[in-house]
């Protein structure tokens, strides 16, 4: 713990000694992370809406007119046994007509049409994991093949559109995260390379008087992680300020939940440490080789 505190202190003083370069790096990193956070905020809200739409996914299974109650019961047992079916509700043609009449505000439909045109229906709610377009299509095909089933209807187009939209959001998140990681490594790389080169002579002396490679690397790696954390904090503050400023115009928009923010900070910290380690390792290796070839 003392060692960690010592290296954090050394990393911090290293950043303070090179204030201009550190501020430039924090600004650049914060800009990258702000874009990433913004996309996460948009994704979070899209996923929230999508979760509400997902709840409305379902199949309507229309039964043949005049199907005996025993067959209806048999079908109910079959369909309930499907792994993909979370719940099943039977709506009789009489109940369906009553619903329609209630919706239209009239009780004369049967009289106008000369009978009840609506079939008995099963309303099926798919199990989680079986609600994407492909799974629903497969389930509809299987159920539609049963004797006594006249037709199976589901909102195929909007289910497909929703799935497609969610895929795009997920790909955009992945792409942005990838670009953000690349940008973090590039910005960190340049900044840390600068810090290492500015202390090249000191590093040489430290090595001769017995510093281990780990001791030489550690302050720079902690400096890199500190830069990332500062940038992440700055990006978060900017995003939250923007969210508060526009909250009245964007009614219903929700801010990122705490566990998303925790993952964000952990991820940034990890990328910061890994990126710093790679850069410092490469720069020190380069300096050592340059020293060797310089003497040769």
């Amino acid at each position: 713990m003392r060692a960690l505190a010592f290296f954090v202190q050394e990393g911090w003083s290293s950043l303070r000694r090179n204030l201009a370069a550190s501020l430039a790096a924090v600004t650049a990193l914060a800009a990258v992370l702000f874009v990433l956070l913004l996309l996460l905020l948009i994704s979070h809200n899209i996923l929230f809406l999508a979760a509400r739409l997902e709840a409305r996914k379902g199949l309507s299974v229309f039964l043949d007119p005049g199907l005996p109650p025993e067959r209806v019961e048999e079908l109910r047992r079959h369909f309930t046994g499907f792994r993909e079916v979370a719940s099943l509700r039977f709506v009789s043609r009489a109940a369906a007509l009553a619903d329609v009449e209630a919706d239209l505000g009239t009780s004369r439909i049967e009289e106008i049409l000369g009978g009840n045109p609506l079939p008995d229906t099963f309303l099926i709610e798919p199990a989680p994991g079986s609600a994407d377009a492909a799974a629903l299509e497969r389930l509809a095909g299987e159920i539609g093949a049963y004797d006594g089933v006249e037709d199976v209807v589901y909102g195929r187009r909007w289910v497909e559109a929703l799935d497609q939209g969610l895929r795009v959001v997920s790909q955009a998140n992945g792409l942005t995260a990838g670009l953000a990681i690349l940008a973090i490594i590039l910005v960190l790389g340049n900044t840390l390379r600068l810090l290492v080169l500015m202390r090249e002579e000191q590093l040489g002396v430290m090595k001769v008087i017995g510093a281990t490679d780990a001791f030489l690397r550690a302050p720079f790696i902690t400096a890199g992680a500190l830069l990332c954390m500062l940038a992440a904090g700055a990006a978060l503050i900017c995003l939250y300020a923007g969210f508060l400023a526009t909250r009245d115009w964007l009614a219903g928009v929700r801010f990122l939940p705490v566990h998303w923010l925790a993952f964000f900070f952990l991820g940034v910290g990890f990328v910061g440490l890994a990126g710093s380690w790679l850069t410092v390792q490469a720069t020190l290796h380069h300096l050592a080789r340059r020293g060797d070839s310089g003497r040769a």
Partner: peptide, 15 residues
């Protein structure tokens, strides 16, 4: 590094 810690080093330009 262990070997180097057994040898104190003093440079002309102090460093």
């Amino acid at each position: 590094p262990q070997l180097r810690r057994r040898c104190g080093v003093v440079f002309q330009d102090f460093r």
